[in-house]
């Protein structure tokens, strides 16, 4: 059984985070580490202005990538998990590609797909794609033969098996894969947004603020990106708690 994160544990974590930040700011006492007392109000202020738009651009890209990756990886994973013969052909290839950090393909993707938002989305989607693919495939192949047989004996054909067994069986896996890979996705987004765009938090942090030494503003961008990762993480986590109730029972 997994352990639930509670509201209280999240709150105490947040308080400790800002407390440590403040202490570090006092200790370092240089412009590169402004105090949260300066950054947080500035952040709240800027979020309703231009920073908000950068945030929205990044957010949209990640969401689009999650969508594209799930739509392609989940059905493919299900199919591979159910067809051991095809899986045995494909799995060595997947095993080789899986650990390669996909960010290294950034220039290739730019050249092949072109310099557009689409190519940035594709890069992130590829990363998430493999995470979901592997998890869903394993979940689907781990389903006990007896489970499938007894559901078949209740009258289920292919469609009902998909609806009542494969879909609910792989959903928690998809969500966990998403939650775990969302951090990497945001990290890659940060790199991808540093060039060939004028919108997005990566652009804001590196080009608009860091390179012109606007440190407090840079920190608002960092907070934005941190928040983006956190929001996605907890949103997926909340859905997981709903969907995978059986994993959290005492």
């Amino acid at each position: 059984m997994k352990k639930k994160a509670t509201f209280l544990s999240t709150l105490s974590g947040t308080i400790m985070f800002f407390g440590l930040w403040q202490l570090a700011a006092l200790a370092v006492n240089r412009p590169i580490l402004p105090s949260p007392v300066v950054v947080v109000p500035l952040f709240l202020n800027n979020m309703t202005a231009e920073l908000g738009l950068h945030f929205l651009a990044s957010f949209t890209r990640v969401l689009a990538a999650i969508f594209v990756a799930t739509v392609f990886a989940a059905p493919l994973g299900l199919a591979l998990g159910q067809m051991p013969r095809i899986d045995s052909i494909a799995s060595p290839l997947i095993a080789i590609i899986y650990p390669i950090p996909k960010i290294i393909f950034l220039p290739v993707i730019y050249v092949v797909i072109g310099i557009s938002d689409f190519s940035k989305v594709m890069l992130i989607a590829i990363i998430i794609f493999f995470q979901i693919l592997v998890v869903v495939r394993d979940e689907a192949s781990n389903l006990k033969k007896e489970l499938i047989l007894s559901v078949k004996s209740l009258g289920a054909g292919r469609r009902a098996l998909f609806r009542y067994v494969y879909l609910p069986a792989s959903l928690p896996g998809v969500l966990t894969a998403l939650r775990v890979s969302v951090g990497t996705a945001v990290a890659v987004l940060f790199i991808a947004e540093q060039s060939l765009t004028t919108w997005g938090l990566g652009y804001y942090i590196v080009i608009e603020t860091y390179q012109v030494l606007m440190y407090p503003e840079m920190y608002t961008g960092i907070m934005g990106m941190g928040l983006l990762g956190m929001l996605l993480y907890f949103a997926i986590y909340a859905i997981e708690l709903k969907v995978s109730k059986h994993m959290y029972v005492e």
Partner: peptide, 17 residues
């Protein structure tokens, strides 16, 4: 499988979720 035949297996085959 025939709709009016009931089958119970050794491993209960319940959906864990």
């Amino acid at each position: 499988p025939r709709p009016s035949t009931g089958l119970v297996l050794q491993d209960h085959g319940l959906l864990p979720w």
